[in-house]
Design a protein around this nucleic acid. Structure first.
Length: 493
RNA sequence: GGCCCCUUAGCCAAGCGGCCUAAGGCAGCGGUUUGCAAAACCGCCAUUCCCGGGUUCGAAUCCCGGAGGGGCCUCCA
């Protein structure tokens, strides 16, 4: 196996080799916490969480840093509107963000630094940049001098001179070159501010990522991730100031995820076409949302639509039904199946079934190796599901009286592979939250009574009556299923 | 104006020069199973990859041109 990652810097897939063998330093840009998280904010976290899971599966130790921007123009404006402090506003939305991450099974973020907690680090870098002639002070502001960096523009293929021709860059009297960007902004009255060698002020946007990545991960990162919209100017600027400061390569692999679209255009707070994660979680399990975000290659744009979510939610049902089947067969919960979390050679009992499972696993890993092709991997998962169901059918595994021990053992081994692979994608980690309120319990008791009556009818060949009970239940969204081992029911998806 | 990217069946979506007479899912249609269903399983569902040229023994995949769509150049995941 050999992992290849598409690197924005070189625009091609490259074999993945971290700086330090066995260790991966990964930094991703988190949100500016001035509004509740929308579904577009979840794309990066879900993808990089999956990247992290796969890297760990391959045996790496992954140190993942995701920052929180808790001071900027939007936060200041918003806090004023809501008549609260920047700090309170940021805190509230950080909590919201974290809740959403949890719902989508995004785990393993080692450090989550906040910009306001790293002002001294930023000041140190700015001072260094001034000393090295890459930045200049202008009336309490400090700007990065893009003309001082011959490499400036290498990430996005931009030439400062050409950009100067573009009329959309903010014109400022203080800047020497239109492409120069603020490292430090002098404070206006009433704004949050910090002491600095250039007077009271606050940091520019890009400097925080340079400072925090350096603080937690050192001068060279293995992976730097973020949305495509951050490529320019944010990452370009981050790259320039970091390399000018350290004189070392800043990032080995730049990864950019595609943007979430709403209709034809991207979903963005500034466009007002956002769908909050919180609202969405009222209607769909976090698992469905995660599955949705993994159902397209991470570099492609993905269009949000309820129809799509609905279709995916349905397709996920095949897995849940299988887990129930597994439970019927073995008496055990799929969620308790333990599988290797690290790659190792698979030793299955010989036979065509074992061989098929082996091949499917191989294909899954190949898809993941190919720049994290999650959609390709999901396709394989469906194939695995079919193989498992077919095997259970052929060997009558649900019929306890007639099944044999050997096939059952082979089946269980294969289920371990399903567990191994699905956990790499962060799927099916825990049972879907089911309400266990007293009312729900009453519903299930009542349904059970009706099913008992219906089965009595069936015994007496009163099929019309039996069918009536079933169809009336179906109308209520309760699906009745007769099986060799007895009758079961579930909620229609 | 500059810099990127996308276009595959009714819909979503893999594919990265030969295993493609193109994965997988949703929808649809047959069949096995079932008292009838549901579920599961089996099978069908793009001779074709936006259009036109070219390179190559060979292209959905590479190059050129055209049409349509998107992102960035201002805050944005």
């Amino acid at each position: 196996m050999s992992l290849r990652i598409y690197n924005t810097l070189t625009r091609q897939k490259e074999p993945f080799v971290p700086v330090e063998s066995g260790k991966v330093k990964m930094y991703t840009c988190g949100p500016t916490v001035y509004k509740p998280a929308h579904i577009g904010h979840m794309v990066g976290p879900v993808i990089f969480d999956t990247v992290r899971r796969y890297l760990e599966y391959l045996g790496y130790e992954v140190i993942w840093v995701l920052n929180i921007t808790d001071v900027d123009d939007k936060l200041i404006a918003r806090a004023r509107e809501e008549n609260t402090t920047v700090r309170e506003l940021a805190e509230r939305h950080t909590l919201d963000y974290l809740e959403c991450l949890r719902a989508l099974q995004v785990q393993g973020i080692r450090f989550m630094p906040r910009a306001t907690e790293h002002i001294p680090d930023m000041i140190r870098i700015i001072e260094g940049l001034i000393a090295r002639g890459h930045a200049y002070v202008a009336d309490g502001d400090v700007y990065f001098d893009v003309t001082s960096d011959p490499d400036y523009g290498k990430l996005c293929h931009r030439d400062p001179e050409q950009m100067a021709a573009g009329a959309r860059i903010e014109v400022s009297e203080k800047k020497r070159h239109p492409g120069d960007f603020a490292l430090w902004k002098s404070a206006k009255p009433g704004e949050p501010s910090w002491e600095s060698p250039w007077g009271l002020g606050r940091p520019g946007w890009h400097i925080e990522c340079s400072a925090m990545s350096m603080r937690y991960l050192g001068e060279t990162l293995d992976i730097h991730g973020g949305g495509l919209d951050l490529q320019f100017p944010h990452h370009e600027n981050e790259l320039a100031q970091s390399e000018c400061f350290t004189g070392k390569p800043f990032v080995r692999y730049w990864m950019h995820n595609g943007l979430l679209k709403f209709g034809q255009t991207k979903m963005a707070g500034s466009l007002g076409n956002v769908v909050n994660v919180h609202d969405l979680l009222q209607r769909y399990p976090g698992e469905t949302l995660r599955f949705f975000l993994l159902s397209t290659h991470y570099r492609s744009p993905i269009e949000f639509s309820e129809e799509r979510l609905e279709a995916l939610h349905k397709s996920l049902g095949a897995f849940y039904r299988f887990f129930e089947r597994y439970q019927r067969i073995t008496g055990k919960s799929f969620y308790d199946v333990s599988a290797p979390t690290r790659y190792q050679e698979l030793a299955l009992v010989n036979g065509s079934f074992a061989k098929e499972i082996q091949q499917l696993r191989q294909r899954f890993l190949q898809e993941m190796d190919d720049d994290f092709n999650t959609q390709g991997a999901i396709g394989v998962l469906f194939g695995l599901l079919t193989a498992l169901n077919r095997f259970a059918d052929e060997h009558h595994l649900e019929d306890a009286a007639h099944r044999e021990a050997a096939p059952l053992a082979r089946f269980e081994q294969a289920v371990v592979v399903l567990r191994e692979l699905t956990q790499i994608l962060g799927l099916f980690l825990s049972p879907l939250a089911v309400s266990v309120s007293a009312r729900d319990r009453l519903v299930s008791d009542l349904v059970q009574i009706l099913l008992d009556v219906r089965n009595e009818c069936r015994k007496q060949k009163q099929f019309a009556l039996a069918d009536m009970i079933r169809s009336r239940l179906t109308e209520l969204g309760i699906v009745v299923e007769d099986r060799p081992g007895g009758t079961t029911w579930r909620w229609q998806q």
